[in-house]
Simulated scan of single mutants.
Amino acid sequence: MSYDILVCGDFYVGPHAGGRLDAVVANKEYALLFGELYEDLKASNLSIVNLEGPVVSSGNPSPKTGPVISMKPLVMEALLDANINLVTLANNHIMDFGIEGFKETLTRLDESNLNFVGAGLSKTAKRKPFITEIKSKKIAIINVCEHEWISDSNSESGANGVDVIENFYQIQALRSTTDFIIVIYHGGNEYHPLPTPDMKKIFRFFVDAGASAVIGHHTHTFSGYEKYHDCPIFYSLGNFIFDSNKKSKGENWNTGVAIGLNVINDQLDFQIIPFLQNDKEIGIKKLKAQALQDFEVKLKKYNEIINDDQKLQEEYNRFAGKMGLQYLAFINPYEGKLSSLFKKGILPSVYSKKKILLLLNLIRCESHKYLLEHILKEKIKKH
């Protein structure tokens, strides 16, 4: 089917995910890779995916915690073949190979004539929106992300971190020069199928500022959606193409959604396209029959929770309870096997109640938080 705009979630092809798709790309089996969304992508005026990592031929991984991922240059041809003509770069992996890997990615995008938004080599460049025209309507795409490993430590290069004040003024300015503004936001808690209560406030605030639609990804699980002031807000699309050979990735890892948007007069009409990606078989299959019914039951449940602030907070409290030991392990000075022993309750926390109150105050109070961030940044430079 043809859409004016087709927005998809995280795209990653590489060894970190198990490696099944590397051979598919190398063999140029693009119809297999994109499966039942292949023709939809090719038929749409503007097809958008999140490029979840740098595209490099070689290089040095960045010093960071968590996975460090990259993709081979061959993926560019796959994206172009499927008519993907805009990639979002504001995400937590685009700087995984440092400033050199980031520069190589930008160069390869430029050489491929593949548009990008959400990152750059200066503050001005990374905040620049992508603007296009469809059906005589001017459309702006703004791409932001949460501040997780998004910049080079010694420069202003990197991804466009969310700043609700600057984002407000940018949206306000674009209202007078464009017809539609779409904000694409990369953030949220991984594997949690609901927005945080603060995310709900931020996404709605973008609409209050003048956004026509807000679309989220990053969590590796699809979430619910709502219409706020008659504008659609999709809290997470889940994965688009992101293979995995690990069973611990969460129940929704392989189920994603694409959003088809159509310009109808002065409104953006939308269609939700749920699919299964790279489960037992390689490729994308649109959900049908019982699988579609199961998805709709989940989606309805998520929507009901999102629309009730109390239920949303209760679900977040439950999620935080499950993640408690993991996060306490982050701040305790245990690593490796010792960290595992702490999470099992064998080793105690080294922090007293008074120390925990101090840490809470440092991250909760804006002035303390900014000062602590500055001090730690300077400390990293000396290592």
Rank of each mutant, 00 (worst) to 15 (best):
N154R: 13
Y316I: 01
N189P: 00
D10M: 04
M95R: 00
C8G: 00
N91K: 09
L276M: 12
T178I: 14
L33Y: 11
I48Y: 03
P197M: 03
K343H: 02
H229I: 06
N27Q: 13
K288F: 04
E36N: 03
Y327A: 00
S340G: 02
I241L: 01
P15Q: 15
Y302V: 08
L261S: 07
S136H: 12
L362E: 07
F242W: 08
V56H: 05
T88S: 12
E378M: 11
V25E: 05
F222D: 09
S2T: 00
E373V: 04
I150V: 10
K126R: 15
A289I: 01
K353H: 14
S58M: 03
F206T: 00
L261I: 10
D4N: 09
E29S: 11
N278S: 13
E148Q: 09
F206N: 05
S157T: 10
V207S: 05
I182F: 08
L32S: 06
D230T: 08
I181P: 07
L237R: 07
H368Q: 15
S236P: 08
N27W: 00
I282G: 10
L299K: 10
K201S: 03
N60H: 03
L86D: 11
A209H: 01
E296T: 07
E156H: 06
L359A: 10
Q326S: 11
S367T: 14
Q310R: 11
L372D: 02
N254L: 00
K337G: 13
L86A: 11
K344V: 06
A119M: 01
Y228L: 11
F270P: 04
D308M: 05
E29F: 04
G66I: 08
R204T: 10
I165Y: 12
A329E: 09
K103A: 03
E39I: 06
V144G: 04
E156Q: 11
L292F: 14
H218S: 10
G161D: 08
L194V: 01
I264F: 07
I375W: 13
D10T: 02
K353C: 08
S57T: 02
L51T: 04
L121A: 05
G256M: 01
H383F: 08
L357F: 08
Y334L: 10
E366W: 03
M71W: 01
N160F: 06
K286Q: 08
R175H: 01
K300W: 01
V13M: 06
E190S: 03
